[in-house]
């Protein structure tokens, strides 16, 4: 390896100080309607950030921009320091995504869904097989590997999607309301599983939700409302900023809107 190779390798390796995911001054409109307005946020390496917002806050639009389904026209998004607009391949290789809608191919087996995704990330057969087995074990679904995806429950499908998002060993995992439509037990299991995986693998997580019970005191919370970031910081900082007794009240103070009560949360999902 010569000097220029080393220089390139250094350039490819992200600066340790760079956030795992950075969104700077991003705006997006659908025609006249502004969905995101000068949104900025950062998720540190290995950190867990909750993007808290009601339906219509702009969470899914932001995810579409982070994953480059939409082009970023205003602002800048980087994943591990790689600009999503300028170096999409490098950025997307570092990103694992769980979309709000179910995206498994129901006619394929669990394992085939994972292997297909591995191929889309250029993983060779042996590595793909090994990774598929490892991530299925991580989410506790090894015994369902041969089952068609359509035979899984909603919670199991979500776990397969999380496994799929991790198969290429990304540095950043983004999940767009991953617990929508799940029962209480499945929700709790998935939240706990992602937190554990994040801790074990050092993966940075951006977790979009409108459910307060998915947020823990140490999480970095970003409050997104009508396309704008109203507050960002640890839960205690958000509560202090709003001068409220708890996060639910703080959210109401900041947005002027109540978060759905736990028993009705999914009604609006």
């Amino acid at each position: 390896m010569d000097g220029s190779d080393l220089a390139e390798l250094t350039a490819l390796a992200p600066d340790p100080g760079t956030p795992a995911l950075s969104v700077e001054g991003v705006s997006h409109s659908y025609g006249e309607r502004r969905a995101l307005d000068d949104v900025s946020l950062a998720v540190p390496r290995g950190g867990f950030a909750a993007l808290l917002g009601l339906n219509g806050a702009g969470k899914t639009t932001l995810f579409s921009l982070i994953t480059r389904l939409f082009d970023t026209r205003h602002g800048r998004i980087t994943v591990q320091g790689f600009d999503v607009a300028r170096r999409p391949s490098a950025a997307l290789a570092e990103l694992g995504v769980v979309f709000q809608a179910r995206t498994l191919d129901l006619d394929l087996s669990v394992r085939d869904n994972l292997l297909y995704h591995a191929a889309l990330h250029g993983l060779g057969h042996r590595r793909a097989q090994a990774r598929a087995a490892a991530v299925l074990e991580d989410v506790g679904l090894t015994e369902r590997a041969r089952d068609k995806a359509r035979r899984l429950s909603g919670g199991q499908m979500r776990r397969v999607e999380i496994a799929r998002a991790l198969i290429h060993e990304p540095s950043v995992l983004v999940l767009d309301e991953p617990t929508v439509g799940l029962d209480v037990a499945s929700k709790a299991a998935i939240v706990e599983q992602v937190r554990a995986l994040s801790r074990m693998r050092g993966v940075a997580v951006l977790w979009a939700t409108h459910l307060l019970d998915e947020i823990e005191p140490g999480d970095h919370v970003i409050v997104l409302h009508l396309g704008k970031v109203l507050a960002a910081g640890e839960m205690s900082e958000i509560i202090a900023l709003a001068q409220a007794p708890d996060l639910r009240s703080a959210f109401r103070v900041l947005t002027g809107t109540a978060v759905p009560a736990p028993e009705t949360e999914d009604a609006g999902a």
Binding site: T67, R68, L69, P88, S89, A90, A91, L92, A93, L95, V97, F99, A101, R102, T103, L104, D105, L106, Y116, H117, L120, H121, G122, R164
Partner: peptide, 13 residues
């Protein structure tokens, strides 16, 4: 069904 997104978020061009 959303499967298309899985294809389009691949790092390949």
């Amino acid at each position: 069904m959303g499967n298309m997104r899985v294809l389009l978020v691949s790092p390949f061009p």
